[in-house]
């Protein structure tokens, strides 16, 4: 089964999402900041990256996604955020952000798994 990297600064989200994906038979690696995230992507070469947007870090999720694409790492990225599209920051998939799909938190395990399967198949 595929290896999925989850990068999120919320340890609870990391744990819950990780468990859901593991229960579906995926292998999971996690990181709670963009630097460690970048490192596990390089070292473990996952087939899919689940990346949180707002990590309150100076180099946030967007930054990491751009950095990966610049380095020609084309692993599909599922961007994960709890910002609602309806307020303030409007963005949509592909809009300046080199990601493959976009989901809003909270997301149900079924939705998460469905998105992951779809992105892995696309590849």
């Amino acid at each position: 089964m595929a290896l999925i990297a989850i990068i999120d600064d919320d340890p609870d989200i990391l744990e819950a999402s990780g468990l859901v994906l593991k229960s579906k038979g995926y292998d999971v690696v996690t990181a709670n900041n963009p630097n460690d995230g970048y490192r596990i992507i390089i070292e473990k070469a996952p087939q899919l990256i689940i990346l949180d947007v707002m990590m309150d870090e100076p180099d946030d999720g967007f930054f990491l996604a751009q950095k990966l694409r610049r380095e020609n790492i084309s692993t599909p990225i599922l961007m994960y955020t709890s910002i609602s599209k309806t307020v303030g920051l409007d963005y949509d998939k592909g809009e300046m952000i080199p990601v493959d799909d976009f989901v809003e938190k909270p997301i149900s395990p079924e939705q998460l798994v469905a998105k992951v399967q779809k992105l892995l198949l696309k590849k």
Partner: peptide
């Protein structure tokens, strides 16, 4: 409002994540 929404949703997402796992008979 956008910031507030984000701050409110983050803990809710975590709690929902845990509850979903506990409800999931496959886990």
């Amino acid at each position: 409002v956008s910031m507030v929404a984000h701050e409110l949703k983050t803990p809710m997402a975590a709690v929902q994540g845990f509850l979903n796992i506990m409800l999931d008979s496959q886990i």
